[in-house]
Computed example of a mutant assay.
Amino acid sequence: MAGVAAAYGRNDARSIRRDSLLLGVAAGPFMYAASMWFLPALTRYLDRDHGFDLVPYHALVLSAFVVIGPVAVLGAVCGLLLIEDKDQRTLAALRVTPAPPSSYPLYRAGTTVAATALSLTAAMALTGQIEAEVVAASVPVTLLCGLNAAAVGFGLAALAHNKVEALALIRAIGLLLFGLPLVPFFYDHPALIAFGAIPTYWPAKAFWEIWDGGNPWPYLAAGALYAGGLAWWLLRRLASQKH
């Protein structure tokens, strides 16, 4: 299994090296994090010139740009790699190799989760706005974001026929994943649990709980079950297609 994973990894490395689009997309979380360097200056400006205190909304801003924002970006990397594999008929070729049928989906899901968790953890630290304790406590949140990114990637590969279609889809999906899950930050009502239909609601809510010193685990558990089930369903849909 280790040898199979190494072979898949070498194939991914070649794909990313020769595709500048993939390199640019993969850098997205760090570009988001770097934009947060301007948050203190923006906070001072709004307070001084407009009398608006942005501090209570720092958790919202940070969750948008370094927690749920990168999910669509890194999910796009997963999806674009899968689409390239489909174009090169790699997925069809794997069916006649000694590699276990489950090895490729497990590899793709595992690498997406790991890459997302590492990228988001590094991005949180890079912002300079999140205390080390919060970064450490948010590692489970980044893993949940990784599950969401895998689901996005499998969905793109299942629905899009080529990279152009995938990029168009990710724009629409990104708006859904990025904007709507932030609405519950402004309200406190049990009915807002309905936003849980959007997968990125759960990591955002868990991050807010950590920021406020609350208990994130109910949201992490619910989000993991939902994102895991969604990723599995989309992966089965992808596997059922003719490549």
Rank of each mutant, 00 (worst) to 15 (best):
residue 1 M to H: 10
residue 4 V to I: 12
residue 6 A to I: 15
residue 9 G to W: 15
residue 11 N to D: 12
residue 11 N to W: 09
residue 12 D to K: 08
residue 14 R to P: 11
residue 14 R to S: 13
residue 16 I to E: 13
residue 16 I to D: 05
residue 18 R to C: 10
residue 18 R to A: 14
residue 18 R to I: 13
residue 19 D to I: 10
residue 21 L to T: 13
residue 23 L to C: 12
residue 24 G to P: 06
residue 25 V to P: 02
residue 25 V to M: 04
residue 27 A to L: 13
residue 32 Y to D: 12
residue 34 A to K: 03
residue 37 W to E: 13
residue 38 F to V: 11
residue 39 L to S: 03
residue 40 P to D: 02
residue 42 L to Q: 14
residue 44 R to T: 11
residue 46 L to Y: 14
residue 50 H to K: 15
residue 50 H to M: 14
residue 50 H to E: 14
residue 53 D to T: 05
residue 53 D to L: 07
residue 54 L to T: 08
residue 54 L to D: 09
residue 60 L to K: 13
residue 64 A to V: 13
residue 66 V to Y: 01
residue 66 V to K: 06
residue 67 V to N: 01
residue 68 I to T: 02
residue 69 G to C: 04
residue 72 A to L: 05
residue 72 A to N: 11
residue 73 V to A: 07
residue 75 G to F: 04
residue 78 C to Q: 07
residue 80 L to P: 01
residue 81 L to F: 05
residue 85 D to N: 03
residue 88 Q to P: 14
residue 90 T to V: 14
residue 96 V to T: 14
residue 97 T to W: 03
residue 99 A to G: 09
residue 102 S to C: 10
residue 105 P to T: 00
residue 108 R to Y: 02
residue 108 R to F: 06
residue 108 R to V: 04
residue 110 G to F: 04
residue 111 T to Y: 05
residue 116 T to Q: 07
residue 120 L to A: 06
residue 120 L to E: 04
residue 122 A to F: 12
residue 124 M to T: 05
residue 128 G to D: 05
residue 132 A to L: 09
residue 136 A to E: 10
residue 136 A to H: 05
residue 137 A to C: 03
residue 137 A to M: 03
residue 141 V to Y: 10
residue 141 V to E: 06
residue 150 A to M: 08
residue 154 F to V: 04
residue 158 A to W: 14
residue 162 N to E: 03
residue 178 F to L: 08
residue 184 P to T: 04
residue 185 F to R: 01
residue 185 F to L: 02
residue 188 D to P: 08
residue 192 L to F: 04
residue 193 I to M: 12
residue 193 I to D: 09
residue 195 F to G: 02
residue 195 F to R: 03
residue 196 G to C: 08
residue 197 A to S: 11
residue 201 Y to S: 03
residue 207 F to R: 02
residue 211 W to S: 00
residue 218 P to T: 02
residue 221 A to Q: 02
residue 223 G to K: 00
residue 225 L to C: 04
residue 227 A to Q: 01
residue 229 G to D: 05
residue 229 G to W: 07
residue 231 A to W: 00
residue 232 W to V: 15
residue 232 W to T: 13
residue 234 L to T: 05
residue 235 L to Q: 11
residue 236 R to K: 06
residue 237 R to I: 10
residue 237 R to P: 09
residue 239 A to Q: 10
